[in-house]
Nucleic acid binder design. Structure first.
Length: 512
RNA sequence: GGUCCCAUAGCUUAAUGGAUAGAGCAACUGCCUUCUAAGCAGUAGGUUACUGGUUCGACCCCAGUUGGGAUCACCA
């Protein structure tokens, strides 16, 4: 009796899901959320750490939007500063006028080469100075290449036209390179901020903070705030010489963002090495009385390390995003060909499948893990395509589409379900329950800013479907109503698979 | 030294304070003459780092210990 009532309930629930094309989209909350993710420097290509950052940020934005929020995705470019000037100095020293056009190299990679070149030149020159009798500390600041970089920074800040021109030229090489990587990964930004446009704005905020008595001036003219009540100590906001520092620029950027969006919540997807920085940022914004300050949220994620330790771009030990993407697509191709899955595919369709499966594997691999956990990436070991993976879910979708194609070749699908609840198979009932759990899963993911909750949902759904698929014939029952019902069930599972995996930025192929 | 994060099976991991801690990989056994085997079914593998505490009940909350990581610039 219990079972029967229960089956009635679930069958009714299923009918509602089938007849509601908007199932899984939550009603508007009226809240405006800005998500900043990926804050690259313009002196090198994007690497695997950025990939985690971008996938996480993009996915959280998608989840929040599905949960009924107005979401704006933004990016900030660290396009100025000593790191850029180092690259410029190296290019002036040994670049021989090379450009992406003249070398045929992708712009961000070409610029990145000079960042490494700078480190090499600096190390050499430092060694020479030390051999000449200078102390290591002194030599660190005294190499000709370092001095050239410092001079470029001074000239940049003084608006020297030639320096600005060089800077703009090299940055202009980087942006198309990064854009290509964003496109490959399928991430996008509504608005791009540039530090070169925000870094001066902090001074006004400092003035108003001083006027409000939130900040105070030290003996040497530096401006500070006392955050010892928050266990964050005293923070300097402006140096004794009147120049601003990193935190001040971020305050200015936050202020500018508020002017642009008047958001209720501001999310920063940034690595956990900056936990302290964002605590300070939030505390200062609270002291300054910004309405959204309490809703500043640092979505902190763990670094991706190599088995040998941290990736260091200066030492050339980084895994470049482009290489990673290319490799995972190549691996997808090898697996797919070994399984003979692309018979009858056009070359274009095959390439597209490799791309979808490769990226699916990569994205699922990075998003299924709780963001705060650090990931050790071993380049020797390729990413899995079996078991708890993106391709597992993709394959489930493809086999559903295959069954549905066969049904549609012979019959009409009208979506009506005629089934006696007592005839419900346990595997079918389990699928009903999992379909119903989509909304709670989405709510949890939105509340905790955690795509892993969605990845787990999609995996569970695919796993339950595969069990059903093995247990229950879909097309070969004597009862045509049963065939129809199981096809509708399959279609609905496919829909929720697409919906959930879509929140992770993962496409699902119709054949694989 | 101060602050913060992490620790679950050999490996990677899951679990609003509530049922026998759930998966995947690796290992072993079965299943393609019916819908896609990137799959399914099964075997084996756990003192949830350690010690206490709170609770009717703790992987989960609290305190301490150990191990790993991050951070604490008038750097970014």
């Amino acid at each position: 009796m219990n079972l029967r009532l229960s089956n009635d309930f679930w069958l009714d629930m299923f009918r509602q899901i089938v007849s509601n094309p908007n199932y899984g989209t939550l009603p508007p909350t009226g809240k405006c959320i800005v998500v900043e993710y990926c804050s690259p420097n313009t002196n090198k290509p994007l690497h695997l750490g950025h990939v985690r950052n971008m996938l996480l940020g993009w996915s959280v934005a998608a989840i929040l939007a599905a949960a009924g929020n107005e979401v704006h995705k933004v990016l900030i470019y660290n396009d100025r500063g000593i790191h850029i000037c180092k690259t410029m100095a190296a290019w002036l020293a040994v670049g021989k006028g090379d450009t992406p056009e003249s070398t045929g190299k992708k712009g961000d990679f070409l610029v990145g080469e000079y960042y490494i070149k700078f480190a090499e030149l600096h190390a050499q020159q430092k060694q020479n100075l030390i051999e000449g009798g200078m102390s290591a500390d002194e030599a660190e600041q005294a190499t000709p290449i370092f001095k050239a970089a410092q001079e470029l920074l001074r000239q940049w800040e003084a608006n020297d036209p030639k320096t600005r021109q060089l800077w703009e030229m090299m940055n202009a090489w980087v942006y198309p390179g990064h854009n290509e990587t964003y496109a490959k990964l399928g991430v996008d930004f509504e608005k791009r901020y540039y530090e070169s446009e925000t870094y001066l704005g902090g001074k006004q905020m400092v003035e108003s903070g001083l006027a409000k008595g939130v900040f105070y001036r030290k003996e040497n003219g530096a401006v500070a705030i006392d955050l010892s009540a928050e266990k964050l100590d005293e923070k300097i906001l402006v140096r004794g010489d009147g120049t601003t520092i990193y935190i001040t620029q971020d305050l200015a950027a936050a202020d500018m963002r508020y002017n642009d969006y008047q958001m209720d919540t501001s999310i920063y997807v940034v690595g956990d090495e900056q936990n302290y920085h964002f605590k300070v940022l939030k505390a200062i914004m609270q002291h300054l009385g910004y309405p959204f300050a309490d809703q500043i949220y640092h979505l902190s994620y763990g670094m991706i390390d190599l088995p040998t330790g941290r990736m260091k771009s200066r030492e050339g030990t980084v895994v470049d995003a482009d290489d990673m993407i290319a490799e995972v697509i190549a691996t997808a191709q090898a697996h797919t060909e070994a399984l003979g899955k692309t018979e009858g595919f056009t070359p274009e369709a095959s390439q597209n499948l490799y791309r979808i499966v490769g990226l699916g594997a990569l994205k699922f691999h990075l998003l299924k893990i709780n963001p705060q956990k650090r990931i050790i990436f071993n380049p020797e070991e390729s990413i899995d395509f079996l078991g708890h993976t993106g391709p597992f879910v993709q394959n489930c979708h493809a086999r559903i589409q295959s069954v549905v194609r066969k049904y549609k070749a012979e019959h009409q699908l009208d979506g009506t379900i005629q089934l006696n609840p007592t005839d419900l198979h346990p595997a079918e009932r389990n699928l009903f329950v999992q379909l119903y759990r989509y909304v709670p899963a989405l709510q949890v993911a939105a509340q905790t800013y955690d795509p892993a909750a969605i990845a787990d949902y999609a995996y569970q759904l695919a796993k339950l479907y595969n069990h059903f698929y093995a247990e229950c014939p879909i097309l070969s029952n004597k009862d045509p109503q049963l065939n129809h019902f199981r096809t509708v069930l399959s279609l609905t599972v496919a829909r929720l698979l697409r919906q959930s995996m879509g929140l992770l930025g993962i496409e699902l192929p119709d054949r694989m």
